[in-house]
Design a binder for these strands. Structure first.
Length: 848
DNA sequence: CAACGCGC
């Protein structure tokens, strides 16, 4: 075997593993760690014939690593070196090194927590930090500490961030190896990177074609940008222009092959992140990096994923640049500045920090941990996302109300699909729709078999996006790859879905042929997976829906659903704010909802104040979560009626809605005056603020029989207000805060208690002749404020000292007003004049 | 107008 950089540290690795339970190996691509480390460990006598498990993040990487190692020991794969990936297992009794993908390791740990017979577990490419590998490490570490002290863990990582994982594993030794890649010349093109992305990128491609040689790999965020960029680059039509190849996951297999294989002329590959780790392209000497990628963000507050375009991390940019240095020295154009380079986040956010954690929550429950914090995490799963996951698992019956896994939950964890789809499988099988359930779960797990943008075929207004796909899948099964399959159906996706469906049928134990499935059945099955997304159209003809979970959704153009009152929203994406986008949905009959979800439906009595009608309305609503399925009129009880009225009074202008007659208002202000004057006497508080806040106490008993605003605004407030005072208080109110006083003329004049200050007595000056003392109330404590009025009832003077008015101000007033009101008496001596409310003529006649 | 990957 020729030497590789990793060989230098293999002896240290073996001796470190003898003394420690875990070792971290940090080695860049090309160091040879994937093949050399397992083979070196195999020679370690301390292994005692136990096996080595190595985890790879992708199936292709797993089979390649196993084949290469097998060839190095001069055997076929499946003897000393084997692999287990989904759908395929090549191991035997001789196998000592088993390369596995992530799901396989999770399942093996869950079924055999002690990993009997395994001596070492190697985590390759650990820096990718998938949810699976984070969980697998946490479980392995737990097994190592509780069940298998002699189990060894080896972490292999490409980046310079291996120190945290070494610390997590009890300060494991950290071994570093050189890589074997060529230098890459980085060129920052920030000045040319100011336009729209596809334009900027195609300009950079033209520049690179002039300045460099060799094939060019371009990183763009998504398929849309790739298509636009392809159009911009493809419009030359001469034989000299390079071959432009798009490369992304949704592309048919042969188109992906064209992008990867060497071409006879110069090639430009326009790729998503698929070329960053998953696929290697032959002949690349130049990389152009747009600096952006599309990333899935989970929003625990909506429970939905959202695709966002974001700047790549520095680690990702380094990985992309490294793709130019595999054959020899390379060149990488970066469409950003050195300044922006310094602001990039160092690493991509690990999946565990920003994903739907329903699956993780189920795995933890299956492992038997109630508290995630009891395991070792590089980044602990965020509490909000974990809680959202647990809530959903309870809704699906996988956890009991204490959060402990149920029998159904154990069964659900055995299916290689999201717990929602596992629930669909279990419920579907119970009702005899097992095979259709497997097809639906497979179609939703794998890539969409309908290519987008859609051309012809199954499109048209429909009441089921799923039934169209089930029929297309069936069609493909009947005719095979060579049959006449309508445009827009992806045969590779059909093959993948069929394979998954067959596996699910095996696990579920479904036998026999696939029976046809109606749109109605599809709706029911999907509702088992997405009970929280049963939705009702906001109004006829609208694309907007209210979901049972209380959130909103809008049907996208992508869905073929027509005008449908009730649906189940199947694939959904979170929006910036407000409504999410429903990509795929299925009609769901109201009678099916009533029958199958009877246990979740509740009748709720609603007695409310309807401000528009100005009356209490009472109905009973049939509710599924936030959805109102139907409603009926009811007769409210007295208590319900009263509390609805009270809330109505609060919602409207409050107290202003009530019938504040002069008498009621005066009564209220008299009590307030006395309460202010004698705070020690314990009078009730009748200020508007307090009355408004205590309607239920003082007004409620008087509301019986009242239903409408009109009745309410006629309600006499005096009885309830008086009801707040004791009998003694009512009596002393009449004496201490009288409604009227009798003035010298004999008139009974009403006292105005409205202001916050002392009460006001507004009286014509002539009626007060001869009186020296200002009238006093409140047991003589408060003199009223006199508003002395002209004969036209205009205020002349405000005073609380009548005596000094007569003596010093009256002569001036008389002089001024005598001419203006000649018919009224203006005596020189007010002390001895006859007080009167009449003119001179009348006072002569009636004054005696 | 939908990145990528994985599963007894």
């Amino acid at each position: 075997m020729y030497r590789l950089p990793i060989d230098d540290i293999l002896p240290q690795l073996l001796s470190a593993l003898n003394d420690h339970s875990a070792v971290v190996v940090q080695a860049p691509p090309g160091a040879g760690k994937t093949t050399r480390v397992p083979l070196a460990l195999l020679k370690n006598p301390l292994l005692h014939n136990q096996t080595i498990l190595m985890l790879e993040p992708r199936r292709l990487a797993a089979t390649n690593a196993a084949r290469w190692m097998a060839s190095l020991v001069g055997e076929e794969v499946g003897k000393t070196v084997g692999y287990s990936i989904r759908f395929e297992r090549k191991v035997s009794a001789l196998t000592r090194i088993e390369v596995v993908t992530e799901g396989i390791l999770s399942r093996r740990l869950q079924s055999d927590p002690a990993l009997a017979g395994v001596g070492v577990v190697i985590f390759d490419e650990f820096h990718e930090r998938s949810l699976h590998s984070d969980l697998a490490l946490a479980l392995c570490r737990d097994a190592q500490q509780g069940l298998r002290e002699e189990l060894k863990i080896v972490i292999m990582s490409a980046t310079l961030d291996a120190a945290p994982v070494a610390a997590l594993l009890g300060n494991a030794p950290l071994l570093t190896s050189e890589g074997r890649t060529f230098p890459v010349d980085l060129r920052y093109l920030h000045r040319e990177a100011e336009g729209r992305l596809p334009e900027t990128v195609s300009a950079a491609v033209h520049r690179a074609l002039k300045e460099t040689e060799g094939d060019i790999l371009v990183f763009l965020p998504g398929a849309g940008d790739i298509r636009r960029c392809q159009q911009l680059l493809g419009n030359h039509g001469d034989g000299q222009s390079p071959l432009v190849c798009p490369l992304y996951g949704d592309l048919p297999f042969d188109a992906q092959e064209r992008a990867i294989m060497p071409a006879s002329r110069r090639k430009v590959v326009l790729a998503t992140n698929i070329a960053e780790t998953s696929l290697t392209i032959e002949g690349v000497r130049v990389v152009i990096d747009s600096g952006f990628c599309r990333r899935l963000r989970f929003d625990p507050s909506s429970g939905l994923n959202r695709l966002v375009t974001a700047r790549v991390s520095a680690a990702s940019a380094a990985q992309r640049a490294g793709r130019a240095g595999r054959l020899g020295p390379g060149i990488c154009y970066r469409l950003w500045s050195e300044h922006i380079q310094s602001t990039l986040i160092p690493f991509e956010t690990p999946e565990i920090c920003a994903s739907d954690l329903t699956w993780l929550a189920l795995e933890l429950a299956l492992w038997g941990v109630a508290d995630a914090a009891s395991l070792a995490w590089l980044d602990a799963p965020p509490a909000a996302a974990l809680a959202e996951g647990r809530t959903l698992l309870k809704r699906l019956g996988a956890l009991d109300r204490h959060g402990v896994i149920s029998e159904a939950g154990r069964r659900m964890a055995g299916f290689p699909v999201h717990p929602r789809l596992a629930h669909l499988l279990v419920e579907g099988e119970k009702r005899g729709y097992g095979a259709a359930a497997c097809d639906i779960a497979a179609l939703l797990t794998e890539r969409d078999i309908f290519r987008y943008p859609f051309s012809t075929g199954y499109r048209g207004v429909s009441d089921s996006d799923m039934l169209d796909r089930l029929e297309a899948l069936d069609e493909w099964r009947k005719r095979g790859d060579n049959g006449a399959i309508p445009d827009g159906v992806d045969m590779n996706a059909c093959r993948a879905a069929d394979r998954v469906s067959r596996q699910l049928r095996n696990i579920l134990g479904v036998k026999g042929t696939i029976q046809p499935c109606s749109a109605e059945t599809a709706g029911l099955l999907l509702a088992w997976a997405y009970p929280d997304r049963i939705a009702r159209q906001r109004e006829p003809g609208s694309a907007r829906y209210l979901l049972a979970n209380g959130r909103g959704g809008k049907l996208s153009e992508r869905s073929a659903l027509g005008d449908t009152p009730f649906i189940v929203a199947v694939t959904m994406e979170g929006g910036e704010r407000g409504d999410g986008v429903i990509h795929l949905a299925n009609a769901l009959g109201i009678d099916i909802i009533r029958k199958e979800f009877a246990g979740d439906i509740a009748w709720q009595r609603l007695v409310d104040w309807d401000g528009q009608q100005g009356r209490v309305v009472a109905r009973e609503e049939e509710r599924l979560g936030a959805l109102v399925l139907g409603s009926r009129q009811i007769t409210p009880s007295t208590d319900e009626m009263v509390s609805a009225l009270l809330s109505g009074i609060g919602e409207e202008q409050g107290l202003a809605l009530l019938n504040w007659t002069r008498e009621a208002e005066q009564f209220r202000s008299r009590v307030c005056f006395i309460a202010r004057t004698f705070p020690e006497d314990g009078w009730p508080d009748l200020t508007p603020e307090h009355l408004g806040g205590t309607l239920a106490e003082w007004l409620a008993p008087y509301l019986t029989g009242i239903k409408t605003l009109a009745q309410l605004s006629n309600l006499d407030l005096l009885p309830p207000l008086k009801g707040m005072l004791s009998w003694e208080q009512q009596r002393s109110l009449d004496t201490q805060a009288p409604t009227h006083v009798v003035v010298p003329s004999g008139s009974r004049i009403s006292i105005d208690y409205d202001k916050d200050g002392p009460p006001v007595l507004a009286v014509k000056l002539q009626e007060m002749f001869g009186l020296a003392d200002t009238p006093k109330i409140a047991r003589g404590r408060v003199p009223v404020v006199l508003h002395l009025l002209s004969p036209a009832r205009r205020p002349i003077q405000v005073t609380q000292d009548l005596k000094s008015f007569w003596n010093s101000i009256y002569p001036e007033v008389k002089k001024e007003l005598k001419g203006r009101y000649p018919k009224h008496p203006w005596p020189d001596d007010p002390w001895n004049a006859v007080p009167t409310r009449h003119t001179k003529k009348r006072s002569v006649v009636g004054g005696r």
